[in-house]
Amino acid sequence: MEFTEKHVEGLKELLYKMADDLLIIGHRNSEWTGLGPMLEEDIAFSSMAQDKVGQSLALFELLHELGESDPDTVAFTRNDNQFHCSQLVELPIGEYDFSMVRHFFFDHAEAIRFEMLADSVFEPLSMVARKFKGEIKYHTMHADIFMKKLAAGGEESFSRMQNSINETFGLALGMFEPGNFEAKLIEAGIFGGEAELQQRWLDKVVPLLESFGYVVPKVENTEAAFGGRHGVHTPHLQPLLDEMTEVFSIDPGADW
């Protein structure tokens, strides 16, 4: 099937939201560097941060090949209303329980997204997705181990985790906010769409959490935190962007 202009627009929208999610969660994860509750966790969140930012670069490169500006310009010169990340990823790291639950929800969604995209007819994306699939295996494995351990870590541990699950579930559903070109992407075989992704994600995370002993809120009783995919963000994103771009803004043309 020949790609029309709409297909390309949809593809760019897809790449932007994925790249922005990865760039922003990567920067949030890196805020645990030096602050992790134990050395291994400090290293884990820092390593995952490095993977995420690296993956976002690969996606920004694909956008560049499709005619967008170069990765540094795109990553560091936009304002919050030009970002397409979900509100889930932009929130501050908070307490460790929140960061862990966000990591669990986000990375399972990413793993399934990459699995779906590994079969994309847009080959440059399918090749990158196949690469990311292997890397993210370690992220979901890490999240699963800790969600399980912390469920069994005593009363305070369990209730902190359960509260975070309750508070984060609607934010997580916000990841699956439909784009403007869902039908076009599905029709062309570029991506199977957010609705399918959400269903596969629910099929994965709900039984897993229940097997650890948690109670998972019902989708029909939860308001999904939509807006992020269309540039509507919480007040937490712009200060993060200001911090990320502080050095770049001082001298954008500097040679590193």
Partner: peptide
Amino acid sequence: MQTPFGPTL
């Protein structure tokens, strides 16, 4: 295994 993450990725 103590942690799947180490000094390099």
